[in-house]
């Protein structure tokens, strides 16, 4: 195993706009590079809430990098319908596969998980809550706790750890992650949920590692960029 995950199945949940999809894509790439080519790595796009900036939009690119993206096919790929392929269960049950499950945002998005509860016995998965305290409705420990209980109730699963994805996109500084970690530390004190990893763009990852030496860092290559972005310049010419 690896410090970023403890189980074969990593479920990525959180409020919408918390950065789940970027975390899910990069975690599946981390699994890809950790395991040999005989192990299959699947990224399940179970987001039926959000319509833009979804893992499935990077289907071809990720396929080239050895990630099997499971998402609605054909016309349904571009639809806003609550339709998911049957192969999701197949991947969750296949003990030889490494799986990252990218879930839709908020309790509404997490409702999808309830359907897979039978495939996900307790202790068989990591369920990571991605938190960005610079987003509305996850800007305090109380709000985060409310989100956790709402997601757990809808998904019928237990959140097992946290991901500190504190960011203001291109304006993020290492200090922002440090401030976010203060809140996550308080959340851990109240709930017992540890921070599994911190995620940030590679440019600030070394500085973040120094500031938070006890927490693994997942550097995020950004995939969900708007059409005007050039390289790492998210905003383009504002």
């Amino acid at each position: 195993m690896n410090s970023l995950w403890h189980h074969r199945v990593s479920i990525i949940t959180g409020s919408y706009g918390s950065g789940k999809t970027e975390v899910a894509i990069n975690l599946s790439l981390a699994k890809r590079s950790f395991y040999g080519s005989e192990t299959s790595v699947s990224l399940i796009d179970a987001d039926i809430v959000n319509l833009y900036f979804r893992s499935r939009d990077k289907f071809e690119e990720l396929a080239k990098r050895g990630i099997h993206v499971i998402a609605p096919a054909g016309d349904l790929r571009h639809a806003d319908l609550p339709a998911l392929p049957a192969s999701i269960s197949g991947s969750l049950r296949d003990t030889q596969q490494q799986v990252v499950l990218d879930v839709g945002g908020d309790p509404a998005g997490a409702t999808v998980l309830g359907r897979y509860q039978a495939d996900l016995p307790e202790g068989s998965y990591d369920m990571i809550l991605v938190v960005n305290p610079y987003r509305p409705y996850t800007d305090s420990v109380d709000a985060m706790q409310r989100l956790i209980s709402a997601i757990e109730s809808k998904s019928r699963l237990r959140i097992t750890a946290l991901c500190n994805n504190s960011n203001l996109m291109g304006f993020t500084t290492p200090e922002d992650l440090l401030r976010g970690q203060d809140l996550l530390g308080e959340l851990e004190a109240r709930t017992g949920l540890p921070t599994a990893f911190v995620s940030c763009v590679p440019a600030i990852a070394p500085a973040v590692s120094v500031m938070l030496p006890n927490i693994p860092v997942l550097p995020l290559g950004l995939y969900m960029l708007p059409p005007w972005a050039t390289g790492n310049n998210y905003a383009g010419e504002v």
């Binding site: 706009g17 987003r135 203001l168």
Partner: peptide, 11 residues
């Protein structure tokens, strides 16, 4: 926390 908030356009 900074005054800036990360938001979706609709929000």
């Amino acid at each position: 926390m900074k005054q800036r908030v990360l938001m979706k356009g609709n929000e």
